[in-house]
Protein backbone atom coordinates (compact mmCIF):
# COMPACT_ATOMS: atom_id res chain seq x y z
CA UNK A 1 0.00 0.00 0.00
CA UNK A 2 2.77 2.40 0.80
CA UNK A 3 6.49 2.27 0.69
CA UNK A 4 9.15 2.93 3.27
CA UNK A 5 10.29 0.85 6.19
CA UNK A 6 8.63 2.70 9.02
CA UNK A 7 9.05 0.87 12.27
CA UNK A 8 7.67 3.11 14.94
CA UNK A 9 4.07 4.26 15.12
CA UNK A 10 4.92 7.89 14.57
CA UNK A 11 7.01 7.04 11.53
CA UNK A 12 4.19 4.91 10.23
CA UNK A 13 1.71 7.71 10.68
CA UNK A 14 4.07 10.16 9.05
CA UNK A 15 4.29 7.88 6.01
CA UNK A 16 0.53 7.49 5.90
CA UNK A 17 0.01 11.21 6.21
CA UNK A 18 2.32 11.83 3.32
CA UNK A 19 0.70 9.10 1.26
CA UNK A 20 -2.96 9.92 1.91
CA UNK A 21 -3.15 13.58 2.82
CA UNK A 22 -3.72 14.96 -0.66
CA UNK A 23 -5.95 12.13 -1.94
CA UNK A 24 -8.15 12.52 1.15
CA UNK A 25 -8.13 16.29 0.82
CA UNK A 26 -9.27 16.03 -2.82
CA UNK A 27 -11.91 13.50 -1.87
CA UNK A 28 -13.30 15.63 0.97
CA UNK A 29 -13.16 18.73 -1.22
CA UNK A 30 -15.35 17.08 -3.82
CA UNK A 31 -17.93 16.22 -1.16
CA UNK A 32 -17.94 19.47 0.82
CA UNK A 33 -17.14 21.75 -2.09
CA UNK A 34 -14.86 23.68 0.21
CA UNK A 35 -11.12 23.34 0.59
CA UNK A 36 -10.88 24.70 4.12
CA UNK A 37 -13.59 22.45 5.51
CA UNK A 38 -12.00 19.56 3.70
CA UNK A 39 -8.73 20.31 5.52
CA UNK A 40 -10.51 20.11 8.87
CA UNK A 41 -12.10 16.83 7.88
CA UNK A 42 -8.76 15.32 6.87
CA UNK A 43 -7.13 16.48 10.07
CA UNK A 44 -9.90 14.89 12.16
CA UNK A 45 -9.54 11.72 10.14
CA UNK A 46 -5.87 11.46 11.03
CA UNK A 47 -6.51 12.25 14.68
CA UNK A 48 -9.08 9.44 14.84
CA UNK A 49 -6.71 7.19 13.03
CA UNK A 50 -4.04 7.82 15.63
CA UNK A 51 -6.37 7.60 18.64
CA UNK A 52 -7.98 4.39 17.55
CA UNK A 53 -4.68 2.69 16.98
CA UNK A 54 -5.87 1.41 13.62
CA UNK A 55 -2.55 2.35 12.08
CA UNK A 56 -1.49 -1.22 12.60
CA UNK A 57 -4.00 -2.09 9.91
CA UNK A 58 -2.04 -3.24 6.85
CA UNK A 59 -4.77 -1.87 4.56
CA UNK A 60 -5.47 1.61 5.92
CA UNK A 61 -6.95 3.05 2.71
CA UNK A 62 -10.47 1.74 3.17
CA UNK A 63 -10.56 2.89 6.79
CA UNK A 64 -9.22 6.35 6.00
CA UNK A 65 -11.56 7.01 3.08
CA UNK A 66 -14.56 5.71 5.04
CA UNK A 67 -13.86 7.95 8.05
CA UNK A 68 -13.02 10.89 5.82
CA UNK A 69 -16.25 10.46 3.86
CA UNK A 70 -18.33 10.27 7.04
CA UNK A 71 -16.60 13.37 8.35
CA UNK A 72 -17.24 15.27 5.15
CA UNK A 73 -20.90 14.25 5.07
CA UNK A 74 -21.22 15.35 8.71
CA UNK A 75 -19.89 18.76 7.86
CA UNK A 76 -22.49 19.10 5.12
CA UNK A 77 -25.25 17.92 7.44
CA UNK A 78 -24.28 20.28 10.26
CA UNK A 79 -23.98 23.28 8.07
CA UNK A 80 -26.98 22.38 5.97
CA UNK A 81 -24.98 23.70 3.14
CA UNK A 82 -26.33 21.10 0.82
CA UNK A 83 -28.10 17.83 0.79
CA UNK A 84 -25.02 15.69 0.51
CA UNK A 85 -26.25 13.59 3.41
CA UNK A 86 -27.01 10.04 2.62
CA UNK A 87 -27.42 7.60 -0.17
CA UNK A 88 -30.73 8.71 -1.63
CA UNK A 89 -29.93 12.35 -1.33
CA UNK A 90 -26.51 11.90 -2.81
CA UNK A 91 -28.11 10.14 -5.73
CA UNK A 92 -30.70 12.83 -6.33
CA UNK A 93 -28.46 15.79 -5.75
CA UNK A 94 -28.44 17.74 -8.94
CA UNK A 95 -25.30 17.70 -10.93
CA UNK A 96 -23.84 21.07 -11.76
CA UNK A 97 -25.27 22.79 -14.78
CA UNK A 98 -23.70 21.91 -18.07
CA UNK A 99 -21.38 24.65 -19.17
CA UNK A 100 -22.55 26.91 -21.97
CA UNK A 101 -20.87 26.53 -25.35
CA UNK A 102 -18.70 29.58 -24.94
CA UNK A 103 -17.53 28.49 -21.52
CA UNK A 104 -17.00 25.03 -22.85
CA UNK A 105 -14.72 26.33 -25.56
CA UNK A 106 -12.72 28.25 -23.02
CA UNK A 107 -12.44 25.24 -20.79
CA UNK A 108 -11.33 22.99 -23.59
CA UNK A 109 -8.50 25.32 -24.31
CA UNK A 110 -7.41 25.12 -20.72
CA UNK A 111 -5.75 21.91 -19.67
CA UNK A 112 -7.90 19.29 -18.01
CA UNK A 113 -11.28 19.93 -19.54
CA UNK A 114 -12.18 16.33 -18.86
CA UNK A 115 -12.48 17.19 -15.15
CA UNK A 116 -15.02 19.85 -16.05
CA UNK A 117 -17.11 17.13 -17.60
CA UNK A 118 -16.59 14.96 -14.52
CA UNK A 119 -17.99 17.81 -12.42
CA UNK A 120 -21.30 17.57 -14.32
CA UNK A 121 -21.83 13.93 -13.30
CA UNK A 122 -24.10 12.96 -10.39
CA UNK A 123 -22.10 13.14 -7.10
CA UNK A 124 -22.44 9.40 -6.52
CA UNK A 125 -20.66 8.75 -9.80
CA UNK A 126 -18.04 11.38 -9.11
CA UNK A 127 -17.03 9.84 -5.82
CA UNK A 128 -16.66 6.30 -7.17
CA UNK A 129 -14.64 7.64 -10.12
CA UNK A 130 -12.38 9.47 -7.72
CA UNK A 131 -11.90 6.44 -5.48
CA UNK A 132 -11.26 4.20 -8.47
CA UNK A 133 -9.08 6.36 -10.71
CA UNK A 134 -7.41 8.71 -8.28
CA UNK A 135 -6.85 6.16 -5.54
CA UNK A 136 -6.80 2.87 -7.39
CA UNK A 137 -9.18 1.18 -4.99
CA UNK A 138 -11.01 -2.00 -5.98
CA UNK A 139 -14.79 -2.21 -6.52
CA UNK A 140 -14.96 -4.09 -3.21
CA UNK A 141 -13.06 -1.42 -1.26
CA UNK A 142 -15.16 1.32 -2.86
CA UNK A 143 -18.31 -0.56 -1.94
CA UNK A 144 -17.23 -0.66 1.71
CA UNK A 145 -16.37 3.02 1.79
CA UNK A 146 -19.56 4.19 0.12
CA UNK A 147 -21.77 1.61 1.89
CA UNK A 148 -23.09 -0.14 -1.15
CA UNK A 149 -22.41 -3.34 -3.11
CA UNK A 150 -19.52 -4.02 -5.47
CA UNK A 151 -22.14 -4.64 -8.15
CA UNK A 152 -23.58 -1.20 -7.69
CA UNK A 153 -20.10 0.33 -7.82
CA UNK A 154 -19.67 -1.44 -11.16
CA UNK A 155 -22.92 0.03 -12.46
CA UNK A 156 -21.99 3.55 -11.30
CA UNK A 157 -18.55 3.39 -12.91
CA UNK A 158 -19.93 1.91 -16.11
CA UNK A 159 -22.60 4.61 -16.36
CA UNK A 160 -20.13 7.37 -15.54
CA UNK A 161 -17.57 6.22 -18.12
CA UNK A 162 -20.24 5.93 -20.77
CA UNK A 163 -21.47 9.45 -20.11
CA UNK A 164 -17.93 10.80 -20.05
CA UNK A 165 -17.11 9.21 -23.39
CA UNK A 166 -20.24 10.62 -24.97
CA UNK A 167 -19.73 14.10 -23.58
CA UNK A 168 -16.05 14.08 -24.38
CA UNK A 169 -16.66 13.01 -27.96
CA UNK A 170 -19.45 15.56 -28.11
CA UNK A 171 -17.09 18.26 -26.93
CA UNK A 172 -14.67 17.26 -29.66
CA UNK A 173 -17.47 17.45 -32.19
CA UNK A 174 -18.42 20.88 -30.98
CA UNK A 175 -14.96 22.17 -31.74
CA UNK A 176 -15.62 24.87 -34.25
CA UNK A 177 -15.45 23.66 -37.82
CA UNK A 178 -12.45 24.31 -39.88
CA UNK A 179 -13.06 25.43 -43.40
CA UNK A 180 -13.52 23.79 -45.89
CA UNK A 181 -16.96 22.75 -44.87
CA UNK A 182 -19.31 20.70 -46.89
CA UNK A 183 -22.69 21.95 -47.78
CA UNK A 184 -24.94 20.19 -45.32
CA UNK A 185 -28.44 20.53 -46.62
Amino acid sequence: MFDGHANTDSERIEVLLRRFELPLLQFATRITGDRERARDVVQETFVKFQNNGVFQNPEPATWLFTVCRNGALNVCRKERRMQYLDQEIIETREAKQQPMPFERLEQEEAAGFLMRIVATLPPRQQEVLQLKFQNDLSYQQIAEITKTTANNVGVLIHTALKTLRQKYAGAAKDFLPFTPRTNET
Binding site: L17, L22, P23, L129
Partner: peptide, 22 residues
Protein backbone atom coordinates in the same frame (compact mmCIF):
# COMPACT_ATOMS: atom_id res chain seq x y z
CA UNK B 1 -12.46 3.13 -25.88
CA UNK B 2 -13.21 2.56 -22.21
CA UNK B 3 -9.53 2.00 -21.47
CA UNK B 4 -8.56 5.09 -23.42
CA UNK B 5 -10.99 7.16 -21.36
CA UNK B 6 -9.67 5.57 -18.17
CA UNK B 7 -6.08 6.47 -19.08
CA UNK B 8 -7.13 10.08 -19.53
CA UNK B 9 -9.12 10.08 -16.30
CA UNK B 10 -6.23 8.65 -14.32
CA UNK B 11 -3.94 11.26 -15.74
CA UNK B 12 -6.28 14.12 -14.89
CA UNK B 13 -7.06 12.79 -11.42
CA UNK B 14 -3.32 12.41 -10.83
CA UNK B 15 -2.80 16.02 -11.92
CA UNK B 16 -5.20 17.13 -9.17
CA UNK B 17 -2.85 15.67 -6.62
CA UNK B 18 0.11 17.47 -8.08
CA UNK B 19 -1.55 20.88 -7.94
CA UNK B 20 -0.56 21.24 -4.34
CA UNK B 21 2.46 19.54 -2.87
CA UNK B 22 1.85 17.95 0.50
Amino acid sequence: ETQAMVRLLRKEFAAELKEESP
